[in-house]
Design a protein around this nucleic acid. Structure first.
Lengths: 142, 142
DNA sequence: TTTTGACTTAAAGGTGACTTTAACTTGTAT
DNA sequence: ATACAAGTTAAAGTCACCTTTAAGTCAAAA
């Protein structure tokens, strides 16, 4: 199965210009061209693009994704550094999750605060600190 | 306790230029000035800045944080929309966590793949699909 | 009082990731 | 054969978020 840039973009849910930009930036060295110069995407290219998408979701920059793709194109001799990079990204994603969970807890406290303020028509906490599940690093209740 | 822009920046772990930029963008309407025009940060301003930091961590844009701050400056009459916004951000953060957890699972599979490839010096999966904990939305093993 | 370091502003510069534009080409459908 | 949608490129534009620069001011210490 073969695809034009527009078809592949649709399949991925991105703009065609995004794929052209990635190609220009050297992220798509695997994509071939027709005799007339038109990009021809294969199913295996879709899988490459899924890898790019996965790395992007980890917050990796395009230039680093490019390096990864270049390594992968080299073949099995680059398995070690690629593995190292995957492990590094795993740790990064774990840290991002931990930070978002902390942020979530802060938001939950703020929600509780606003809901209490609404009910009582007064700021909460008039000597009831010990009753609340409030956060140790307590912040201004805005 | 009072702070200059440099001291507050240090306390927050950001560049002084960042605080000046936020002020310029209208995110810090609460910060007062000395007679000579120097910004004077109070402890309560630190707490405002923590709120800004929290919202930034949810991925909110500066212009939306500005709206939130402006509402909070209005007082209790804006509690309802502020609560709604907090709840919305909570959902957004939950979705971000879910996506990162999915990404993490993909990375874990890739790590397993590379480690197996290293051991066997051959790509994994030669009829052993059913033995693996591999992902249903299987991707090219790059 | 003078020095010195940190402050002030407006304006320009930088970065990352695209998107848009303009002029042109390709390739399929009638 | 011709039209036409969708492809091509280089270059410029956009957006969010800062950072840097330049020229000048403030205020605490020597």
């Amino acid at each position: 199965m073969l695809y034009t840039v527009g078809e592949m973009a649709k399949k991925l849910g991105v703009a065609p210009s995004t794929l052209r930009y990635y190609d220009q930036e050297g992220l798509l060295p695997f994509v071939e061209r027709s005799s007339g110069g038109i990009r021809v995407f294969k199913d295996s290219d879709y899988e490459w693009l899924q890898v790019i998408g996965c790395l992007k979701k980890t917050g990796m920059q395009l230039k680093d994704i490019k390096s990864f793709i270049e390594m992968a194109m080299q073949g099995d001799e680059t398995i070690e550094p690629r593995l190292a990079l995957i492990v590094k990204q795993k740790e990064s994603v774990k840290a991002q999750i931990a930070e978002l969970e902390e942020t979530l807890r802060t938001l939950e406290f703020k929600q509780w605060y606003y809901e209490t303020a609404k009910k009582t028509a007064l700021p909460p906490f008039r000597g009831i600190w010990h009753l609340t599940n409030c956060r140790s690093n307590f912040e201004k209740c805005v």
